[in-house]
Design a protein around this nucleic acid. Sequence first.
DNA 1: CGCGTGATTGAAACCCTTCAAGTTTAGTGG
DNA 2: CCACTAAACTTGAAGGGTTTCAATCACGCG
Lengths: 196, 196
Amino acid sequence: MENFFKYLSENAGITPGQFNILKPLLQVKNIVKGKYILTKGEVCSHSFFVEKGLLRMYSINKEGKENIIQFASENWFISDRSSAFFHEPSQYNIDAVEDTAVVLIDAKFMTTALEISPEFRSYNENLLQNHIRHLQGRITLLIGASAEERYMNFIKLYSDLTLRVPQWMIASYLGITPESLSRVRKELAKQHFKGY
Amino acid sequence: MENFFKYLSENAGITPGQFNILKPLLQVKNIVKGKYILTKGEVCSHSFFVEKGLLRMYSINKEGKENIIQFASENWFISDRSSAFFHEPSQYNIDAVEDTAVVLIDAKFMTTALEISPEFRSYNENLLQNHIRHLQGRITLLIGASAEERYMNFIKLYSDLTLRVPQWMIASYLGITPESLSRVRKELAKQHFKGY
DNA sequence: CGCGTGATTGAAACCCTTCAAGTTTAGTGG
DNA sequence: CCACTAAACTTGAAGGGTTTCAATCACGCG
């Protein structure tokens, strides 16, 4: 819970007094590596703030392959917004890449926080806009960039994750096979981009 | 302007009285086929509502190829939200695929509409969430689906656009070459999916 | 130690691209 | 309204990047 409060005070201007109002609406949950907090078909009723650890959200395509949509490590939110907002069954799974602690954020928390803090409202919109920017950037890369370019972009954007996430998951995030990623890395190493 | 009002009254509960307050904040602009309303490097200061016609937003990759991010025909909004929201130079171009009439929506309009109509606020959030859902679905397809699957998805989602948009632009939207799309269509025709 | 998971490597296959040519369609001016 | 031209679409052959399948290697953990 401490990280979440620290995060809210730094980014959304939430005061200790406000946090005391919000605290009873929150719940912490631990997920051991490999376990799920959202499975396909469920309606997603929470947003998850990662206090510690690492989560991933993915879907499964026609051939049964996992396609990773998003990772979330410390101080990131993750959720199937569509499912939560439109009360639809989710297309996605969310599970733990490492042992993880999350703060569960429900609709009640959101409405309360939006009521008591105008700054929280604008921060929330900021988050949404940022999310859109991020997704658009990713689409641009998927349409127009090679596997190598996409990987270089990944290690630039998520240098911290590059060491924590198994390579085959990074491959899945990039939309290539683990074998291809291995070869891309080999190529890059040859070109004197030693290390990660 | 009529379409826009009709749209707002049907979707965001805007009344004639409210629209009279908003109307002075709006401007209509005509764009002839091939002309731009946003070019890379500019800061995007408006959202555009398409009254009539068809726009596209695209970026240009390293090899100088166009990658189409989004189309917008009648009753759709289009904008570089990131640029508008964060006051950054845009990465994208927006131009007219057909002669087009748009309503220019600026920040003042948004704040005013949000003030006078609570329903507009929730509608606006709806739009944002929907946008995210849409982008996520597209990422899933780009990561995990073949060119053929992506094209089938396109004609299902945008059957109206399939006839209006040149094929090479659809190819660009799907992340493949025009030649490949031509061959995909040939394949599909063979398999008795005659027509479009 | 041995088992399982993840990473690497090789060879063949496949999908898509590239380049080049030809055909069709659409737009323009005489 | 036809003739001409440019743009869009199609088709073929060759090539590149990525996948697939299979085998091997490396490592951590019970």
